Simulated assay, not measured.
Amino acid sequence: MGFVGDFCDDVARSIGFLSRIPMPARHFEGYDGRLSRAVRAFPLAGLLIALPSAAVAMALMALQASSLFAAFVVVAIQALVTGALHEDGLGDTADGFGGGRDREAALAIMKDSRIGTYAAVALILSFGLRVSALASILPLFSPLGAAMAILGAACLSRAAMVWHWSSLPPARSGGVAAAAGAPEPA
């Protein structure tokens, strides 16, 4: 297919994995579900996934809406577009680390779909910190600058995800990270 076609497939697969945005089925024909190569497209996928929230931030700031209101709307859009994927992971991790007596108990808690106290506290703090940080920096930028900052953060955070993923072994041999495969070094 060639480099460009393969990269387009990787972008679509990355968007499909990192968000709720539907991608055309042609990008998944013969695909085994592994993200080993597709992770190279995570930063670009992050940018594309963040476009709706960046556009809304730009519009709200151009309309001189309250930066606190704009920040809440931006974070809400991001959670909706990603299907709260990152929040789910944060909640599972907080419950596992907070409630697990040992590795096996922590992994069992993390697999449980119920939200515990540690997850609730972590999610409240996460949303509060993101909204307050965004509300603090939005007024420092022009509307276009605010949108660019959101897009830049989305790219950097997805690149950091790949670095983290390639630096640590999967928590469990049958988990999502193990099934998705380790990122290819190239």
Rank of each mutant, 00 (worst) to 15 (best):
L44S: 09
P183G: 10
R130M: 08
A76K: 09
A25S: 14
S66M: 08
P43W: 12
V74C: 02
D102G: 13
A182Y: 01
G33R: 13
A94L: 08
L85E: 00
V176Q: 12
A160F: 10
R101D: 10
G2D: 14
A45N: 03
D9F: 05
A119K: 05
A180N: 11
G5S: 14
A120G: 15
A105I: 11
A177E: 13
Q78F: 04
A120Y: 03
H27C: 14
A38P: 01
G98T: 00
S67D: 06
P22F: 05
F127M: 15
W163E: 08
A186N: 12
G30T: 08
R158G: 03
E87N: 02
D92T: 02
S167A: 15
P43R: 07
I124T: 14
I21L: 15
G98W: 05
D88P: 02
G46K: 04
A177H: 04
A146Y: 00
S113V: 12
F3W: 15
Y31V: 02
A25N: 12
F127P: 01
G91N: 07
R34V: 11
V4Y: 12
S19V: 09
A149G: 03
L35N: 03
S66F: 01
W165K: 06
V81R: 02
F141D: 08
L107M: 13
P22G: 00
L63V: 00
A106T: 07
E104C: 05
D6V: 12
L68Y: 10
P139Y: 11
A84Q: 09
S173N: 14
V81P: 03
R26D: 05
I49Y: 03
F69H: 02
G145M: 10
V131I: 15
S142Y: 05
A171C: 10
S19T: 07
P185V: 12
R26I: 14
L51M: 13
V81E: 01
G128H: 11
P170V: 01
P185I: 11
L47M: 15
A177T: 06
G46C: 07
H27K: 06
Y31E: 08
P185A: 14
M23E: 07
Y31W: 15
V121W: 06
